[in-house]
Design a protein around this nucleic acid. Sequence first.
RNA 1: GCGGGGGUCGCCGAGCCAGGUCAAAGGCGUAGGCUUCAGGAGCCUAUCCCGCAGGGGUUCGUGGGUUCGAAUCCCACCCCCCGCACCA
Length: 960
Amino acid sequence: MSQTKQTEEKWLRYWEAAHLFEADPDPERKKLLVTFPYPYMNGPLHVGHAFTATRVDVYARFKRMQGYNVLWPWSWHWTGQPLLAASNRVKKGDEIYIRLLREVDGVPEAELKKFADPLYMAQYYTNEGRAAARAIGFSIDWRREFTTVMPTYQKFIEWQYTNLREQGYVSKGTHPVVWCPKDKSPTGDHDRQIGEGVTPEEYILIKYQLDERTFLPAATFRPETIYGVTNMWINPDATYVEAAVDQENWIISQEAAEKLREQEKKVEIKRALKGRELIGKTFTNPITKAKFPILPGWFVDPKQATGVVYSVPAHAPYDWLALKDLQGKPDISAEFGIDPKIVQQITPVSLITLEGYGRFPAVEIVQQMGVKDQHDPKAEEATKELYKKEFHGGILNESCGPYSGKTVRDIKDVLIRDFKSAGVADSMYDLPQSVVCRCMTPCVVKVLSDQWFLNYSNDEWKAKAKEAVAGMKVFPQTASSWFIAVIDWLKEWACARTTGFGTPLPWGKGWIIETLSDSTVYMAFYTINKHIRQHGIKPEALTREVFDYIFLGKGDPPAISENAGLHLDKLNGMREEFLYWYPFDLRVSAKELVPNHLTFCIFHHVALFPRNLWPRAIGVNGMLLIEGKQMHKSKGNFITMKGAVERYGADATRCALLLGAEEMDDPDWRSDNALDLKSKLESWRKFAHDICSSAKNEKVGHLEKWLLSRLQKRITTVSESLEELKTRTALQVAFFETWNDFRWYIQRNGKADAVALREASQIWIRLLAPFAPFTCEELWNSIGAKGFVSLAKWPKTEEQMIDLAAEENEALLTDLIDDTLNVVRATKITPRHIFYYTAASWKHRVYKIVLDKAKAGEILMGEIMKTVSADPELKPHMKDAAALIPRLIKTLNKIPQERKRSIIRTEGINENRVFTEALSFLRERFNSEITVFSEEDKEKFDPKKRAQLAIPAQPAIYIE
RNA sequence: GCGGGGGUCGCCGAGCCAGGUCAAAGGCGUAGGCUUCAGGAGCCUAUCCCGCAGGGGUUCGUGGGUUCGAAUCCCACCCCCCGCACCA
């Protein structure tokens, strides 16, 4: 076992022996409940989980050190389909999949065999996951752990849904889904062989009349074009059927008849016919009652919607092309028994006015784009383009009856509603592209009836959800508008399924609560699961009344206790513990959960709980990339949490993840970085340890004061950043920037034996403890500090330690070095002797005047001159002062406001002394002799007359 | 298409909301030096261009605009990433 591993194991044991992270209610301390969405257990935890969870852990550890009673619980999601699917693949001996389990997940051969049992598989990954979460050092209270198939948990979900339904948030309805006829279940993206991302589209069917009792339902996305119809297109070679559809007589393609059967339509096929049988007949526009011919159109696809298409050549490029084509070939019309004259006479009918186009945009666009005929691929492009333009900018013209003058965009939905209620339109769903199930069966659209929905369309519910967002903190703030957008956008969500693991719907036989819908308020369950486990409370005792009392305070406890057979003390204990911890104070996840889980979580909280128990804060972060690419198990770039911790150690893994990104940016995991961090942490440990063990020098000079002063600023930045979950900034400052302060100190001082340094290190170690807990515990212990650093007091900014003079002193020096280096660079001299000349005292006097004016606001030359000339001591320098002042103003303008303030407050710093005291440091720094003069020194060596250039805070320089 | 987030000096990334402090933090990489038996680690220095004196020039996706002044504000455009549902 490696050194790192041993150290980590040691501290894990100590923490556990001390029950360090087990949190119980303590009225004396402020509580903090932080949560991480429980991971789904069809695979191992990976570094993506680790990234988000480390952010939670860092926050938890930070707050714990600040004295909060912090509870961080963890659990496992087993509900849903994928676990079954995964297990099935093992059972079926799917070689590719099994290899991934073996090689990526590292599942031993003996275990692999048992994966035919999905519950065993879940248990295996849960055990692995728990070990990984422990090993990386998450400060979790494991006493509250559960899985989502436990009966006690399921009682909780039952309670949740019973209440949701009673309040009217659950309803029954129908919904179109992509459906596999063989599996008899919806085919989600993950279950598809072909057709990822394809969703059902709703076509409007215009019921044109063929005769008194027969309809030709033509499918369209643009029902408004009914006012421009000129003819119908039927594919003469395709097979159509005449069928009774919901007691009406329809002619549609054979395929369409099958599809409609899955869409809540009763379909009885009477007879089949070839399309050519219809060609040459006429049909009636149900709105205008005008009659038009049916013409042959080979481009009509019987597999698409109804296989019946009406023609609008003024606005549809395909229709125009097909018409032109047919007009050019009179023999074809004749062949179908159509008088070619009738075809010749067809002219486009305009119905939409579109800026930039004449009356027949389709004709124009075909010309512009040079589309040859209906088989030209550009026809598709032209169609899309025109459709878009007419939808966004088109206005219905005078031919459109009651809809004239309206924009297409505004009127479309109204028009559809009107047509449907007038009985001239219907609708059907179809897939824009083919979808094939993993089982190789082509999918269709099925309209599910008796489907249970969460009513996210409910406006009152939406309003409350928005109120919750407004009332909580969202990290980063920009995510807040996203939540609002999602709340607006969400509509009915099917919350039950017929397959997979999950809690049975309390009132619906055969239905199981869908997995995203059973994971919305379970954070409340953590608060009581400790009791359930410790007291062995049986699921039967967890009745609705029991939960109503625990979570809502409803009912009479003795009676409830009696009825449920649950001891009153236990019941009250759970109520108290819930009230102590709830609501949760922070939930963090990757941004992919914003449009679903996190928003559901908000919805369900506002539905079930009173306002004071609504979420307090939600944090969102990016999705982890591996070496710049998306993490994919099947593509080989997949790193498990366990693997990372084994290779780089827990602390390096945590730090490498946190330094990747913050806010919603996607962090990038680079193994080089993790490796580098590992050695950096180790050398930091040595560095800090050496400082602490060599501390003996009691002197507290200005350098010690400087370091402690800088440290105060670091404490402030780290604390403030963590408060806003800016974990990257916090770690960067706590680790690298603080380290740079120490480096400067050592450079300046030459040695690191001051007692003050040990004090500083102790602050530093605590600042880093949330990020690198193992290294910090080890250090804390090795320097002889008492107790666990995990429980040590978080450093507080001590105002009295801030020493502006010390900081200004060092700033003068760094400025001097920068200037000197600049000169060296420009002149390419290798300095042998550097001479500095600090400004004459009268210049400092002027400087102060200018500074005072600068503080007051605008710097006015005239006013400054007035003040200067009023000063008797400056009388002899009036002429020089006039030249000096503009220079001073220019220099001061370059200085940050904050620095200006500190210069003013530390006025009277003796530059000569500062530089003289740093003489040996400067000598070493430039490997050159250094001499410091004052401009006023009579004896100074100044061959190039540089001294007179000196101004305060910027000595003149001469190098030879 | 709709919604959300972005494009910064080799890379990763701060800065942008509250304009001047910005040639622009920090880390990585690279180069040189110190240390070391050597390697690694550590430490120091440099890292947009020009400059024999602390200065100048050109930069923050592109093009305009506001302003004494723009990486930051406004407008238009281009490009990238994520989500769009019954699925975790």
